[in-house]
């Protein structure tokens, strides 16, 4: 199997594990949150309730909310520092709850309450912010993994199979035609006129450095080897950027915005369809 395919499989497997762990944490969080809510309702918790009951309901709700957000984040495709942010957010929230458990109710006074609450809220906001940023990024740039996986396993149509066969046949014919050797029985009888070998034909000279050759080589082989730290790196990066920007070759601003909106809507629709389907 190709090394790229193996790497791709490994990444997919790793991605699946995190996804399933996230799902479990998310489900547990929902359960804890539900238990906490039910506990509040059943015990009719109010300002003057017993501290043990308030403590228990706070822990259920607090841990549940943190787990819900952590699980949601883990189920999403992350950016480069995404998992660090999840870790930091979760740690901040849980640490705040831990401080709460040690200090409530005997030492539960201001300004400690401010610090603990602030830490908890910051943790939750980091998790919410990371999830929001990922969703926005995904809608603008990426494709959902589910759609990508469906593309990998697509089934070829009859038309595509026929076209592939036609291409293969054509290549085979071309190869066999290349091996032909032609005889020239007439060649020895030819007598050339006086000027035949004197000059090659009408010539025209045009000043041109033929810079297109370099551009063509770079366009066809964008991944050409360049020594690390060389001055060419800047040029190659610019070239790659130009290639990536081809999508916007002379594109008007309004058209660009229109395309982006249509594209985002299509992706959003495909996500909804995928979720409904499975």
């Amino acid at each position: 199997m190709d090394s790229n395919v193996i790497a791709q499989h490994r990444i997919l497997k790793h991605g699946s594990l995190i996804y399933y762990a996230g799902s479990a944490i998310f489900a547990s969080g929902i359960a804890l949150f539900a238990v906490g809510t039910a506990f509040i309702m059943m015990q009719k918790i109010h300002y003057g309730s017993e501290p043990e009951k308030i403590f228990l309901s706070s822990i259920f709700i607090g841990v549940g909310a943190t787990m819900i957000l952590t699980g949601m984040n883990m189920m999403m495709r992350q950016t480069r520092y995404g998992y660090h942010l999840i870790g930091a957010g979760t740690f901040a929230s849980l640490f705040a709850l831990l401080v709460f458990t040690y200090n409530y109710p005997q030492k539960w006074y201001y300004p400690l309450i401010n610090y603990v609450l602030a830490l908890y809220v910051v943790g939750l906001l980091v998790l919410v912010g990371n999830a929001f940023a990922n969703v926005v990024l995904w809608m603008i740039e990426g494709k959902p993994d589910t759609v990508m996986r469906r593309e990998v396993q697509r089934i070829y149509t009859d038309e595509e199979i026929e076209r592939d066969i036609e291409d293969a046949t054509r290549k085979s014919i071309e190869l066999s035609a290349s091996e032909l050797i032609f005889k020239e029985p007439y060649a020895k009888d030819v007598k050339y006129g006086k000027i035949f070998h004197e000059k090659r034909g009408t010539t025209t000279r045009i000043k041109d450095n033929l810079d297109e050759v370099t551009s063509l080589v770079k366009t066809v082989n964008p991944g050409e080897r360049i020594k690390s730290g060389s001055a060419e790196i800047e040029g190659a990066s610019k070239n790659l950027l130009d290639i990536l920007r081809v999508g916007s070759v002379k594109k008007s601003k309004s058209r660009e915005i229109k395309d982006k909106i249509v594209d985002t809507m299509e992706r959003f629709y495909s996500l909804i369809t995928v979720k409904r389907g499975g």
Partner: peptide, 15 residues
């Protein structure tokens, strides 16, 4: 039409 590079020019030879 044949084309080739000669110094800083492209030379086209045609018939």
């Amino acid at each position: 039409i044949c084309s080739e590079k000669e110094d800083g020019d492209i030379v086209f030879t045609q018939e």
